[in-house]
Design a protein around this nucleic acid. Structure first.
Lengths: 151, 151
DNA sequence: AAAGATTGATCAGTCAATCTTG
DNA sequence: CAAGATTGACTGATCAATCTTT
């Protein structure tokens, strides 16, 4: 047993883990059923698409909470699939700029309704006061970063 | 942009993902710094330890939200590390029963203070009313399963 | 030497097929 | 044939080492 943690703390942690795993699984299952790429691709495609003039890999790492090599390999796959382009960076010879291809935009747009419908089903049904409290509480746990809009 | 989701729904989702990833990363980093096994091992060790008379792999799958082969491989590693034993199951010749070794109990006990201190730091500082709201809201998102106590 | 990014080797996760017992 | 569990082959994640540019 060892040093006890307040029951509320452990309850938050276990439920946080269960909730995120459960909903993530539901999204992945729905995307796979439609023959679409996994959730991790969506997040990357969307961040690149929002940055209309392209985005630096480093910036993407921060937003996606991925290690450097993780992003490198993810981008590899998306480039191979024809969804993303790597361009040399003018202002910094070491770096690059990532851009979406038309195919990338199309796939992102196809994924969104599937993704959104799962979120609606899993999260959208919460009572308003509970939802508002979650936004506040999860905001504190999520840390300083702002929450970007989806869709 | 396509079909819009209520801003509250997307805010809950993105913050849920960020919070769980961030805290999980913090726990993994702390465990690794002490030369201890990853978080996934802790959860498995603890569930096995709680079931004093042993636990069936299927039951463990449900609690850990792992696929069958995923659990099989996880147990492989823990057995190889000398932390878990596989025993034949009396009541069902197809199945088995998992038990912790003394080394397994020792490692689990060593992991807990590290694990707990990260949770305390990341979650324990929330104001009481926010924490209570999170327990309730996350309970709804986590689904029907009960929340087992840790430590 | 540090920052941006990639790579070879290795380990973990996944899928479909398999084996054994009920 | 269904249920409990494992396995071979493959894809994805991780670590340390590397390369290039600042």
């Amino acid at each position: 047993m060892t040093p006890a943690l307040p029951a509320t703390t452990t309850a938050i942690w276990t439920r946080l883990m269960r909730a995120s795993t459960r909903i993530q699984d539901a999204v992945e299952t729905a995307l796979k059923a439609e023959g679409l790429p996994p959730l991790s691709w969506y997040d990357a495609l969307w961040e690149i698409e929002k940055a209309a003039t392209g985005i630096r890999p480093l910036a993407l790492q921060d937003r996606l909470l991925l290690p450097q090599y993780g992003l490198s390999r993810l981008v590899d796959r998306m480039v191979k699939a024809g969804l993303v382009e790597r361009l040399a960076c003018d202002s910094d010879g070491r770096g690059q700029v990532l851009l979406l291809t038309d195919a990338g935009r199309a796939v992102r747009a196809k994924m969104w309704p599937i993704y959104a419908s799962v979120l609606q089903a899993e999260i959208g049904a919460l009572p308003q006061d509970v939802a508002a409290a979650l936004v506040q509480g999860l905001g504190l746990l999520a840390g300083s970063d702002l929450t970007p809009e989806q869709g």
